[in-house]
Simulated assay, not measured.
Amino acid sequence: MTEPLPWPATPPAHGSVVLREFADTDGQLALELGEDPYVPLIGSLPAHPTGREAEEWVRRQQTRHAEGRGFPFVITADETVVGTIGLWLRNLSEGAGIVGYSVSPRHRRRGFATDALKAMTGFARTVPGVERIELYIEPWNRGSLRAAEKAGYRREGLLPAHQEIGGTARDMLLYVKP
């Protein structure tokens, strides 16, 4: 395993949000996100997690950086935990960082995703090797599409059957911030 890139000395922030490392106390976020019908389909969080499963998910997020996978952050607004966002580096050899994000259902439609994307974009620009930032969004996900566009990302194209979600190959829209 290669040495992970350094964690940011100053937490990324924009507008109403600050991005911070996962803490042991973030299990409630996992419980909230696990109740969403979509979020468990796109990652390692089980649907309707137990308290123990939520704690295990938080621990997995805490190890991702040391494993060299990327930078998982918790999105906070006025110190309230509202979601998660990550910069993933599996395509770093191609100059690309991939951003994924989820906002807890009870905190949606308040601009947190847009502010988190702007904060993450600023941070991603400091990561050696990241020349392009990519988002993969399902065409039906209007909230995520709005957040991406408000954060200055542009649609580059439709990728048919690009990603498996919930056991089905799904079309994804590719949004980029060159």
Score class of each variant (00 low, 15 high):
9 A>N: 09
113 A>D: 02
159 L>S: 13
107 H>Y: 04
67 E>Q: 11
50 T>Y: 07
168 T>D: 03
60 R>W: 09
92 L>G: 07
106 R>Y: 05
167 G>E: 07
8 P>I: 03
27 G>V: 06
16 S>T: 11
141 N>M: 11
111 G>N: 06
137 I>N: 04
129 G>V: 08
144 S>G: 12
111 G>K: 03
109 R>G: 07
14 H>P: 09
102 S>I: 00
48 H>K: 14
47 A>Q: 05
165 I>G: 00
35 E>T: 04
3 E>I: 06
32 E>A: 08
120 M>R: 03
157 G>P: 11
56 E>A: 13
162 H>A: 10
32 E>I: 00
9 A>T: 13
139 P>I: 13
97 G>Q: 01
36 D>P: 09
4 P>M: 11
175 Y>K: 12
13 A>K: 11
134 E>K: 13
1 M>T: 07
50 T>R: 03
10 T>H: 14
96 A>I: 09
58 V>I: 07
155 R>E: 12
29 L>V: 13
40 P>C: 08
140 W>T: 09
108 R>V: 11
2 T>M: 14
111 G>D: 08
112 F>P: 00
19 L>K: 05
124 A>I: 00
127 V>K: 01
96 A>C: 09
156 E>F: 12
33 L>I: 03
163 Q>T: 14
161 A>V: 15
32 E>T: 03
70 G>V: 04
76 T>E: 02
148 A>K: 15
156 E>L: 08
101 Y>L: 06
25 T>Y: 03
107 H>K: 05
79 E>Q: 15
104 S>H: 06
103 V>Q: 00
46 P>F: 10
129 G>K: 08
115 D>S: 12
11 P>W: 06
80 T>C: 09
18 V>S: 13
111 G>C: 02
162 H>Y: 14
17 V>H: 08
157 G>F: 13
49 P>K: 03
120 M>F: 04
23 A>H: 08
99 V>G: 00
178 P>V: 14
52 R>T: 02
30 A>Q: 01
170 R>G: 14
4 P>E: 01
107 H>C: 06
173 L>C: 10
116 A>G: 00
162 H>C: 15
94 E>D: 08
23 A>R: 11
124 A>P: 05
121 T>H: 14
138 E>H: 04
110 R>P: 09
48 H>P: 10
39 V>T: 04
16 S>C: 12
160 P>Q: 06
26 D>M: 07
48 H>Q: 14
152 G>C: 13
43 G>T: 09
144 S>W: 15
30 A>L: 01
71 F>M: 10
115 D>P: 00
135 L>G: 09
103 V>T: 00
135 L>S: 06
58 V>G: 00
112 F>L: 08
53 E>S: 12
49 P>E: 03
4 P>Y: 04
175 Y>L: 15
97 G>N: 07
25 T>A: 10
125 R>M: 14
105 P>A: 03
71 F>W: 02
100 G>Q: 01
149 E>Y: 11
93 S>G: 02
20 R>S: 05
54 A>C: 06
25 T>H: 12
68 G>C: 11
3 E>V: 05
166 G>K: 08
22 F>D: 13
24 D>H: 05
95 G>I: 00
24 D>P: 00
59 R>Y: 12
164 E>T: 15
60 R>M: 12
99 V>K: 06
152 G>Y: 15
144 S>H: 10
153 Y>P: 02
9 A>F: 11
18 V>T: 14
78 D>T: 04
78 D>A: 14
